[in-house]
């Protein structure tokens, strides 16, 4: 399923771009992220705790940044295994446009899950994904705010 939206981030496009490439910021913004370590350029291992419907699981997986067009767009994607809970993978295509001194961020999220999460929580994937995406970007805006005012 595909979910999208847009946010006005209170920072310049260059700062937003930097933030989107900063593992510390990503770790702060990815909901449930317990660990994010760079393993290669634009590649990280991650541990994320997610709760979808009745299934709560710790996913370990890989986060990658790809299709980079500085400072306009990239794809943030992740793939994780949650043991018997199954797997989840997906990503967000993110585009940045200047909007005065702010930056308009538009995103499209795609999510695929398998295993127990799909069997018991499939009804909730869309709403959960929406919630997780908005959590990510709301935190992202907050971090941007503090960066700019700092």
């Amino acid at each position: 399923m595909d979910i999208g939206g847009e946010y006005l981030v209170p920072a310049s496009r260059e700062i937003v771009w930097e933030m989107l490439n900063d593992p510390e910021v990503l770790a702060q913004c990815i909901p449930g992220c317990e660990e994010l370590e760079a393993t290669a350029e634009d590649e990280f291992t991650a541990k994320v705790v997610l709760k979808i419907g009745p299934v709560k699981a710790k996913f370990s997986g890989v986060v990658t940044l790809s299709d980079k067009v500085h400072p306009e767009s990239y794809r943030l994607s992740g793939e994780g295994k949650g043991g018997i809970a199954g797997f989840a993978k997906g990503g967000a295509n993110i585009r940045l446009e200047e909007s005065g001194s702010d930056t308009k961020l538009t995103y499209e999220v795609d999510v695929q899950v398998g295993g127990k999460i799909a069997q018991l929580g499939s009804r909730l994937i869309a709403s959960t994904s929406k919630k997780l995406a908005s959590k990510f970007f709301i935190t992202f805006c907050e971090v941007a705010q503090t960066r700019v005012s700092a």
Binding site: Q112, V113, G114, G115, A118, Q119, S122
Partner: peptide, 14 residues
């Protein structure tokens, strides 16, 4: 099943 072959109706909830 969804297009990826995940069974969406795998409990009495669905």
């Amino acid at each position: 099943y969804d297009d990826n072959g995940q069974l969406l109706t795998a409990s009495y909830m669905d």
